[in-house]
Write a protein that binds this DNA or RNA. Structure first.
Length: 238
DNA sequence: ATGCATCCAAGTTA
DNA sequence: GTAACTTGGATGCA
């Protein structure tokens, strides 16, 4: 790991300011223009496309490819409707000593932080003012890998600390759908919110997004490259 | 021909 | 007791 991830320093908004940050075209306000706010009924996202510059993102990607060890065996499988499937992605869980993560019925202990994850965690904490103690790593080997629609609403998560999602590698579509508008003939018609998660970007899913909105990373057959996603979370220790 | 959206399949768990 | 959770396959459409 070279030092580039640790070294970049730039003034960023503290969490108390995040509500005020909306966008965009005012190039004189560098601090504000780096965040895009995406809002809808009970949906509140803060998106920063250039959390990492190109070089930093490439370095972080390469380092993580060396440092992260993904689940194998039973932890890489899931049972759905009675049938066992390989997960359509690779997963790993890192965090503070003693923390556990509930995952498809299993309770997995977080393994101790690796350098690149720690550096990124520190940078996110500096930018947002929130504190994180856990990181779920999802690696999508190609556009055939995906994540089905779900909410991140586990009881053990601190609901007021937004999940901070870092994207590295191949850009991928990311889709939010409101819980009342998930099927074609649902009563309410709320359009899905679609976005692209770019290389080096940071997405904050602010409360109460994960109470009302499901999100997914759909299959995209034409995509051949790898995407690594890091979701930093705050787990309330038992 | 292919990608994509939609719907559906049950058994374990909170 | 009951509702939520998971993914892949079938289908229809563009």
């Amino acid at each position: 790991m070279n030092s580039s991830i640790a070294d970049f320093v730039e003034c960023r908004p503290h969490k108390r300011n995040l509500e005020e940050i909306s966008d965009t075209s005012d190039s004189s306000k560098k601090l504000k223009s780096s965040w895009r706010s995406i809002k809808n009924e009970n949906l509140d996202l803060s998106y920063m496309s250039s959390f990492l510059n190109r070089t930093e993102a490439r370095d972080a990607f390469i380092c993580l490819e060396n440092e992260v060890e993904y689940f194998t065996g039973d932890l890489a499988k899931v049972r759905v409707f009675g049938k066992w499937h390989d997960l359509p992605r690779q997963q790993a869980a890192y965090g503070d000593r003693g923390l556990t993560y509930k995952f498809s019925g299993c309770t997995v202990p977080a393994i101790s932080w690796v350098p690149t994850l720690l550096k990124l965690k520190t940078r996110i904490e500096d930018i947002t003012g929130y504190q994180y103690n856990f990181c779920l790593v999802n690696r999508y080997r190609s556009g055939n890998d995906s994540m089905g629609e779900h909410r991140d609403d586990e009881a053990e998560l601190d609901p007021k600390t937004p999940i901070a999602s870092v994207s590295l590698g191949e850009p991928r579509d990311f889709i939010f759908r409101h819980q009342d508008s998930r099927s074609k003939n649902s009563v309410r018609k709320i359009a899905p919110v679609k976005m692209v998660l770019e290389n080096g970007s940071l997405l904050l899913m602010n409360w109460p997004t994960n109470v009302y909105w499901f999100h997914s990373l759909p299959v995209r057959k034409k995509i051949l490259g790898v995407r690594i996603n890091l979701t930093f979370r705050r787990i309330i220790p038992k």
